[in-house]
Simulated scan of single mutants.
Amino acid sequence: MSEMVLRSQWFDYFSKRILNDFGIVVSDIENYQPDLSPIVYCCLLNRRVINKKRKIIYSKAFLESNWYNDERWIKLKDLIEEGGDINCYMSKAINEWKAVDYLLYTYNVSHFHLHKDKKGGIRNELVFGVFTHDCFYAICVGGHNDIYKPDELIGRAYDAWPTEIYDYELNSKKNNKFDQGFFKRQANIPELQFNKANSTPIKNGKGEVIAHVDKFQHTLLVNLTLNDIEYKSIPYSVYCAYLNEIKHIEEIEMSLVNNVKADKMDLIILPEKKMYEVIVHNRISFKKSIPFRRKVLICTLYNQ
């Protein structure tokens, strides 16, 4: 597609947001092209926890553990309840836009460290749980090896909240087994990563399968090609947001070109008002305000 003025300015808006919000210079990104900037921005947001006050709901195992009264956890608990920034306790890969948090993407389980330095989370102690819009379901505190045991983490969630955060099939006759070793290879080898296809068995204390969990992915993963360059394992929600908004931007531009013969225009994006403003520089300049499309996910409002 030939160069379009408003679309180009939309790309530039996100390259500036990437620098201002995350301190990342887009020219340092491998295979970067201007068209990629909204996708990079949303991918960075996709693994982050939006800062907002949340109620913490504990599993029984967490409540009965020594961690419940540990001062390190209490510090993080206060941060979550107050709506502070928990992302500084996440993996140091939080600012790598192509990094895949396979536990989060595949099972919607977040994990973050109890300690941090200037670059992010450090040491082995990790908090595991599920963030929703208003709550954090605290499953347990574990170590790095637990990242590769989603079946055990989901089993604990089933014991604590059998109806709240996952969909379960009770008394299922399915015999599929979960292979922790294969999941670890998937998580660490990009070529093996794919969206979970099979349900995961939940066992009781005797090792008997009592339920299967399904329909709980944080996101699907897709491959995306922009200008003949392929980018792998892009969150599907990011892909949808990109298509939704770029289509709208292009429609706005073509409408102005066709109706008022506009060729010099400036795009102003106002997320707080959920509006675009376009200043058209014709013989008589004018400004046109266009609302964001409703009920669709777009890059500009991705964190909402």
Rank of each mutant, 00 (worst) to 15 (best):
S255W: 13
Y231D: 07
Q33A: 08
L220Q: 13
I154L: 15
N204T: 00
P38I: 08
D21I: 11
N303D: 15
I50G: 10
S15N: 10
K16T: 05
L270Q: 08
N175W: 03
W97C: 09
L170R: 01
I284H: 09
A187K: 09
I74M: 15
D21F: 01
L243K: 10
K184R: 15
N51Q: 13
S65Q: 05
A197N: 02
K232C: 03
H218T: 00
I94L: 15
E169N: 06
T219H: 02
H248I: 02
G207C: 03
N204W: 01
V26A: 13
E96N: 14
I249Y: 01
E125Q: 14
C42A: 14
N87R: 13
I122T: 14
F183S: 02
T106I: 05
P162Q: 02
I18L: 12
P271L: 06
Y239L: 00
K60T: 11
F178A: 00
I147H: 07
I249K: 02
K119N: 13
E81F: 07
I252A: 08
E191F: 15
I74R: 15
K177P: 00
I139D: 09
V26S: 14
I252W: 04
Y168S: 03
T163G: 01
I18N: 12
F14V: 08
E152D: 12
N124Y: 02
Y168P: 01
F112A: 11
Y102A: 12
K98I: 05
Y302N: 04
K116F: 09
N258R: 14
E82F: 10
N46C: 04
V257K: 15
F62G: 03
Y105T: 10
I290K: 07
Y236R: 02
K273G: 00
V280C: 13
E3Q: 13
V209N: 06
T219W: 06
K98V: 05
E245Y: 00
F216W: 04
S27I: 06
K232Q: 07
I249L: 03
F14S: 07
D12C: 03
H111P: 13
